[in-house]
């Protein structure tokens, strides 16, 4: 018989390295037509990081995402970066890019201030304009300002900066300290069906509500969550490297079973409104935490459906069936 169950799991997860320095540096160059180039040593690993970093540079300069080209991942031309690890790219590299873009922007403010008859600190960069604060009718187009700064004043608009999250060493005896500068939070809820005659578990739906601070690009955050859930479903139900005397016996995609798109449940993905003052425009991160609570939620849903608690992952059909049979024996 097919039995249904629901189960929830929440989690917390840190952004960046545990105490250890994990700096990022960045260079931002504004071109004379108002477009810009960002140099970063991070690597695009498929998550869309370069899009997000471009958006962060664009926001700081008051231009559009498409106006920014991001050059990455070449030790001959890009500055140091700790890399695409520890859910740190948006937060750490993003903060470095904000600081670098602010330096490039400052050159534009200084060039535009005399032309607009104000002080540099009275200016803002929005809508492709260098504009007087609280006086939106007085502005210069950003491209004109860049060209003036570079070609007339001889001051190209370039900025470089770095960022490293502040932490406090952990006490070796008690572990007390401040290992990270930011954490994110999330809840996932699973709706499952368990066949109590075969032990087979089908995840029908997962509702996932995640915090990433400000979502720089909500679409890419949703993509991360969807991908993380698929990894969580595999961890919960299918994936396992099996050994015999130190030899992996299933090192191939025939016998190492992982979820395909057809195994994916219906997904409801939402973000929690939040703003972290230490992140770029309030952003924290979204990469790893998306895969964290899925298995726990599914196990709790299996228990709700058939009353067996799986304490050893993955919950394969064989394992779930054995637990159901043991429970039935105990009842009888």
């Amino acid at each position: 018989m097919i039995k249904r169950g629901k189960g929830m799991a929440c989690m917390w997860y840190p952004i960046g390295f545990t105490v250890a320095a994990n700096a990022s540096a960045a260079t931002v160059k504004v071109n004379t037509d108002g477009t810009a180039t960002v140099l970063t040593g991070t690597v695009e690993t498929g998550q869309g990081a370069l899009t997000v970093l471009g958006q962060i540079a664009a926001q700081t300069l008051g231009i559009a995402t498409d106006d920014v080209h991001v050059v990455s991942a070449d030790t001959d031309s890009t500055p140091m970066d700790t890399g695409a690890i520890a859910s740190r790219t948006t937060y750490v590299t993003g903060n470095a890019i904000v600081l670098a873009a602010e330096k490039a922007r400052e050159i534009l403010f200084e060039a535009a201030a005399p032309l607009l008859n104000v002080r540099p600190e009275q200016l803002e960069a929005v809508d492709k304009k260098i504009r007087v604060l609280s006086f939106p009718d007085r502005f210069l187009p950003i491209d004109k300002v860049v060209a003036h700064a570079e070609n007339t004043l001889g001051k190209p608009s370039i900025g470089s900066a770095s960022y490293n999250p502040p932490t406090v060493e952990m006490d070796p005896e008690t572990g007390q300290g401040k290992p990270f500068n930011a954490y994110v939070y999330a809840t996932q809820i699973a709706d499952v069906e368990v066949d109590d005659e075969t032990g087979e578990v089908e995840v029908k739906k997962i509702t996932a509500v995640h915090d990433c601070g400000t979502p720089i690009n909500p679409m890419l955050v949703e993509g991360q969550i969807q991908g993380g859930i698929s990894m969580g479903v595999g961890f919960a139900l299918q994936e396992e490297i099996l050994f015999k005397d130190g030899t992996q016996i299933n090192p191939n995609l025939t016998n190492y079973i992982m979820p395909t798109s057809l195994d994916m449940p219906e997904l409801e993905v939402e973000l929690v409104d939040n703003y972290d003052p230490t992140g770029p425009f309030g952003a924290k991160g979204a990469g790893e935490p998306t895969a964290v609570p899925t298995a726990a939620a599914i196990m709790n849903a299996i228990y709700d459906a058939v009353g067996v608690r799986i304490t050893n992952l993955p919950a394969t059909a064989e394992k779930v069936l054995a637990a159901i049979q043991e429970k039935n024996k105990a009842v009888a």
Binding site: R4, Q176, Y185, T187, D191, D211, E270, A305
Partner: peptide
């Protein structure tokens, strides 16, 4: 936190409530 760090921008309860509302945790029937 367990390391006695004071946490900021904490929205755990918000995520629990929002997920439960969206899922229909209370109304959900087997």
């Amino acid at each position: 936190s367990p390391t006695s760090q004071q946490l900021q921008s904490v929205v755990l309860k918000e995520s629990l409530k929002q997920a439960s509302d969206r899922f229909g945790w209370k109304e959900w029937k087997k």
